[in-house]
Amino acid sequence: MTRGLWDRETVALMLIAAYLPLAAMWLRYGGVAAALDFVAILLVLAGWQLVFLLVRAQAPSLSAIASALAIAMLMPEELGPLRVILGVSFGTVMGELVFGGWGRNVVHPATIALAFLGFGFPGFDWPDILLPAAWAAIPAGLIGVVAGIMPWPVIAGAVLIGAGGVALGFDLNAVLPAAALVLVLLVADPVTSAATTLGRWLNGLLYGFLVILFATGWNGAAPVQIAVSAALLATLAAPVLDEAAIALWRANRRRRHGKP
């Protein structure tokens, strides 16, 4: 049989391709220090992939590059190597590898790592998002959607509710760059976002709603903190949203065709 190309590693490669504009902007302004962070995190991830390859015979995945980029761009500043290694290890092992590797995970490993780093070590400042990097989220999202690897309803739902929030007069200027970046890096992940069309819309809407809720009601929270928290909660809700969407689909079908 001839073979198509949408296996796991192609999707991982396409995801990396989509993130290239983001990475370029981030490295352009972050310089050598940012690049070193990224490489260090990637080494930790690769180390754990190797451990799971040898111990559990679990094939490694290039998606680690995308995770490393997300963590490096969004993690709190000046944590020191030990804390970073601890947080990244927790994220990739508990978030991805124990479930059987990328494609079988429930939560994005970068989301787990960031939540661990941010809430485990509260004394450190969350990073400020560079505006050029945030603008680069637009081409990243576009590439992802056109290639079909990012679920467009998630992005559309989040953008829709964000626009609605701005139109209603909420002050979202501070949080928008971080929210856009987290949307393409963590929320619009093909594996851990919802998998049905309706579920994806709800997933995006929920993320946008949580961002607005935190931005208006959570005093003293940094923009990235708000966005990462919203991403974590939205990801955890994704299976419920899917289940609801499938139940609705079944009910519709039963109404059309009678008994299943």
Partner: peptide
Amino acid sequence: ALTRSGLPAPVIPTAALTQAFGAALPATA
């Protein structure tokens, strides 16, 4: 020995998968 236990490889939900099912049902489910 190192790659056999991970088979079958996980299926990543993409637009291509949805279209391969004719967009007629929740493909991932």
